[in-house]
Simulated assay, not measured.
Amino acid sequence: MSVEGPGLPSEQIHRQLRSRILAGTLAGGERLPSVRQLARDLGVASGTVAKAYKLLEEDGLVVSRAGAGTRVSGSVSSPPASVMKAARELTRVAAANGVQLDEAILALRASWPQE
């Protein structure tokens, strides 16, 4: 994980952790690093990580408890393995063709079945 690119560092951390949680890379009940540890690892202020964790908590993706740290919520479900495999393949093909994330998302939305 890194903090570079567009957006505030807290937003970048929030987005990256959110993606990992929703993809199932971070499973329900799994403990996140402490605010201080992650801040040290990323070279940012503790308040930046605390803000990202607060956003994740507001999203219902993590639960924070004094003394127990911050854990991924047990109620979070990730997509089926076949969907994750297809998403990784889309990522690979898009990157190989110089397609940026926003463009790949637009392509996915355009191909999504209409209700």
Results as ranks from 00 to 15, higher is better:
31 R>E: 15
25 T>Q: 14
50 A>K: 05
107 A>M: 13
33 P>F: 04
3 V>Y: 02
52 A>K: 03
49 V>Q: 05
104 A>V: 09
12 Q>G: 07
32 L>Y: 10
10 S>K: 10
38 L>Q: 15
39 A>W: 11
114 Q>P: 01
87 A>Y: 08
114 Q>M: 14
94 A>H: 04
102 D>S: 13
75 S>W: 09
49 V>L: 04
60 G>W: 02
50 A>E: 14
43 G>H: 08
27 A>W: 12
105 I>T: 04
5 G>T: 01
97 N>M: 04
56 L>T: 04
81 A>F: 08
23 A>P: 00
60 G>S: 01
95 A>P: 09
32 L>M: 13
14 H>G: 06
77 S>M: 08
37 Q>E: 15
53 Y>M: 05
60 G>N: 02
17 L>T: 08
110 A>F: 00
84 M>N: 11
88 R>C: 07
90 L>G: 05
79 P>K: 10
80 P>S: 07
86 A>K: 07
80 P>N: 04
94 A>T: 03
53 Y>P: 01
57 E>L: 02
10 S>F: 05
83 V>K: 00
34 S>A: 13
41 D>L: 11
1 M>G: 05
21 I>P: 06
111 S>F: 12
48 T>A: 08
54 K>M: 12
41 D>I: 07
3 V>G: 01
100 Q>P: 01
107 A>S: 08
7 G>C: 03
106 L>D: 14
